[in-house]
């Protein structure tokens, strides 16, 4: 039995999402292992982002369960939580395919907003903050320190007071990851983090993700097209096609799975056997 089945951080069970008559995701089950980097791959329109939107609460699944296992042992049924509680309580953070930063706010402010909930508590839901009670000042300083840590890690520290909209595309992608990490997540969902990056930036991203996994108690689930990224850094790959899981396993296993090859090369189902022969199975 694999690690992700023994010690999952997220269990996706029979997830189905229908839009009217269209089934975007059909009866999908897979596990995300704790501490793993799990990649969700598949051709365009395979339903990857839909799965993400279900996990992070932007869609309510038609059927199925999404169980988040927190490290403390508590379980959260994500499909029952409103979207903001998925981040606040279940500790699932995400980034977006088309970057969603607070463009008119500075980079530092972006990271401060991400620490909204603990800071709200520290400011006694604003009352203590307005009156200038001491506890808040200390907590705020801690929050700034945490933000600085992530800014150093992403190499954005020199531009901390610049507007987020001023950053280059690659920097914006990294800032979005830093912002998600500032919520202190146990599961980080990245929607195509390498899209539009040049090779150098792509490499930096790999390093960043490895650091996150190594030094933080955060598991990563990512959607990616860039196979070099997927194969290099992920421990576990789930392949979707037309909303159905066609393969699930280690990168090596998936790389050689004829279903995957067929899906990526666009072969009809009845030709799968031929392809299998070709790849020597």
């Amino acid at each position: 039995m694999s690690h992700w089945d023994n010690n999952p951080v997220l269990k996706v069970e029979h997830l189905t999402m229908r839009f009217g008559g269209l089934t975007a995701v059909g009866d999908l089950s897979f596990n995300v292992g704790r501490g793993d980097i799990t990649a969700l791959i598949g051709p365009n329109g395979a339903g990857k982002t839909t799965v993400f939107n279900c996990i992070t609460g932007f869609y309510k699944p038609t059927e199925g369960r999404l169980v988040m296992h927190r490290s403390g042992g508590e379980k959260h049924l994500l499909e029952r939580l409103p979207d903001f509680k998925i981040s606040a309580n279940a500790k699932v953070a995400r980034t977006f395919q088309n970057i969603r930063l607070f463009g008119g706010m500075t980079i530092l402010e972006n990271l401060m907003v991400a620490q909204h909930n603990p800071l709200m508590v520290a400011s006694n839901w604003t009352i203590g903050g307005v009156l200038g009670l001491g506890g808040f000042k200390r907590k705020e300083a801690e929050a700034v320190e945490r933000a600085k840590y992530w800014l150093e890690l992403t190499g954005l520290i020199d531009r901390a007071d610049k507007a987020a909209a001023d950053l280059s595309y690659g920097d914006q992608r990294r800032l979005e990851i830093a912002r998600a990490m500032c919520t202190g997540p146990e599961l980080l969902c990245l929607d195509e983090p390498a899209a539009g990056l040049n090779p150098k930036e792509s490499l930096e991203l790999n390093t960043l993700l490895s650091t996150i996994r190594r030094e933080h108690d955060t598991s990563i689930l990512l959607i990616e097209h860039d196979m070099s990224v997927v194969m290099e850094i992920s421990d576990h790959v789930v392949v979707l096609d037309y909303g159905v899981k066609i393969s699930d396993g280690t990168p090596d296993f998936v790389k050689n799975d004829p279903h995957v090859i067929a899906a990526y090369l666009g072969v009809d189902d009845d030709e799968v056997d031929d392809v299998e022969e070709e790849v020597g199975l």
Partner: peptide, 24 residues
Amino acid sequence: LPIGRAWEALREDEIACRSLGINT
């Protein structure tokens, strides 16, 4: 204060706010 920053963040991008656990 966090509440004020949340207001401005809301003005910038509501969906991102929700993804960061802010009760919009």
